[in-house]
Write a protein that binds this DNA or RNA. Structure first.
Length: 445
RNA sequence: GGCCACUUGGCGGAGUGGUUACGCAGCGGCCUGCAAAGCCGUGGACGCCAGUUCGAAUCUGGCAGUGGCCUCCA
């Protein structure tokens, strides 16, 4: 079965064939760690985690890298405010992201490069660009010379002439062309910086991805991903600098962008302040519920984040677990393979809503089937492929469930059964109410 | 101003030129001491206007609405 994915660069769904089947390469832009991540960051991580899982299933030897931007003006600003080193801020929020991602069942990427570990590579990168006239020095900054790259704007579908310079941000005076972007900028004495041929300073935002991709994955990678909001200017700039640095080799064969989350009618974003933090959400909802909510819509569609969506996901997930409860203990996880229809949905541009529809229908068919175990295997195999149904009926997670081994609760259940046997329904219903208050659902039979 | 995307039932959300998506919620029934779960059944949709076609929610054009981007963002 072939794997198809929508390529933002060509604006078409295309069959994905890796350039080198022995090493499939994917890079996704990770977060800048200057504060706790919101659920939009979570969506991106979940989408590319899901893509990585499916690619791993289809191809051997996927190398998936997702970076952490640990040097940036925003981090520096926070560090000034908190009066600590910027590395302290970066470390703190890297840990927060890791914790959040783990709870969302996002697997660690194969490589997680930190920008500050690649300063040397970035300096070399800039040096290369200066040598071939793709960059210039101006007012202690090194800038990328956009006019030297004719394909600039191709990814985001815009022409330099059509852009309205300074529409939002004032054009810096040291730029030859408003679209030129910073590769290296000077750092004041009291701020973090590294020595370079152009003085003490720090790299521009876009550079790290290009340098780290080149270092770990090569000059041309199979898939480059990130949020839709990174298309311009971030990815456009990455392409420009990488292509110019690497003798016109394309940076990525496929570009994959996830749609943005919205709160009501506007996009959720840090600058608008209308975001929901992952850590706050995770206090109220199970990570698997959040993951299901995210995967219930196609990754390229905008998704309106709401409590309704979450509450629906709770019910749906409950039912999925209920349908496999106890049967799942009889099977070996190794034997669980995804259903063919689920697979073909996922192979078709990662159509998770369609895959979930099939998962639900398998789940529904279990109770009336003669061959329950096979269906349970297929259900778990399918759900696991997209990072769902990670728990078994006897897991800690279900402590507060009918499978609870807690003595007090088991006794209550026994007492209730006794009352029912004696047809003392007043008493049995009273105990049921207690159990419900303890978060335990009673399913007779 | 330029570029791009989207618009499906109460809600979420796929898909297809002609046949039930699916889930949640609803309604009727079976089961149950009563519930829950399960089972059986059921109503309800493709933004508007034209065009192409034997046939369009699906293709084309126009219109409207919503949203995104035009150097902070996943």
């Amino acid at each position: 079965m072939e794997f198809k994915i929508y390529n933002s660069y060509t604006r078409k769904k295309e069959i994905f064939i890796p350039a080198n089947p022995n090493k499939v390469t994917m890079y996704a832009c990770g977060p800048t760690v200057y504060g706790p991540g919101h659920i939009g960051n979570g969506r991106s991580a979940i989408v590319f985690d899901c893509l990585a899982r499916v690619l791993r299933f289809k191809f051997d030897n996927l190398v998936y890298a997702r970076n952490i931007t640990d040097i940036d003006d925003k981090i520096i600003n926070v560090s000034k405010r908190e009066k600590v080193e910027s590395s302290v801020i970066a470390k703190k929020f890297t840990k927060q992201y890791h914790d959040d991602f783990k709870k969302l069942y996002v697997l660690a990427p194969d490589i997680e490069p930190f920008a500050t570990n690649y300063i040397d590579q970035m300096i070399k990168f800039i040096d290369n660009l200066l040598k071939n006239n793709s960059a210039y020095l101006s007012d202690s900054h090194v800038l990328f010379n956009v006019s030297n790259f004719p394909d600039y704007g191709k990814l985001s579908g815009r022409k330099i002439e059509e852009m309205k310079p300074g529409a939002r941000i004032e054009v810096a005076s040291y730029k030859k062309n408003p679209s030129d972007f910073v590769l290296w900028k000077p750092s004041p004495e009291n701020e973090i910086g590294w020595d370079s041929p152009w003085g003490r300073g720090r790299p521009g935002w876009h550079l790290e991805c290009s340098a780290m991709i080149k270092e770990h994955l090569g000059e041309t990678i199979d898939i480059h991903g990130g949020g839709e909001d990174l298309t311009f200017p971030h990815h456009e700039n990455e392409i420009a600098q990488s292509v110019c640095c690497n003798e016109n080799n394309p940076l990525a064969r496929f570009w994959v962008h996830n749609g943005l989350l919205r709160s009501e009618n506007t996009k959720m974003s840090k600058s608008l302040g209308n975001f929901v933090l992952m850590k706050d959400l995770l206090k109220e909802y199970d990570g698997e519920v959040i993951r299901l909510a995210i995967l219930s819509s196609h990754y390229r569609q905008p998704l309106i984040w709401s409590n309704d969506l979450l509450n629906q996901s709770i019910k749906t997930l409950d039912k999925l677990y209920l349908s496999i409860a106890s049967y799942d203990l009889e099977i070996d996880i190794e034997d669980c393979n995804p259903d063919e229809e689920v697979l073909s949905a996922l192979y078709d541009d990662l159509n998770t809503p369609k895959a979930l529809a099939k998962i639900f229908s398998i789940s529904k068919s279990i109770s009336k089937s003669e061959n329950k175990i096979n269906l349970v295997k297929s259900l778990i195999g399918s759900a696991n492929l997209i990072g769902l149904l990670n728990h078994r009926s006897d897991d800690e997670k279900f402590k507060n469930n009918i499978y609870d081994t807690d003595e007090k609760i088991q006794n209550l259940i026994k007492e209730r059964k006794l009352a029912r046997d004696n047809k003392d329904y007043l008493e049995s219903d009273r105990i049921r109410d207690i159990l419900i208050k303890l978060g335990i659902k009673i399913n007779d039979k």
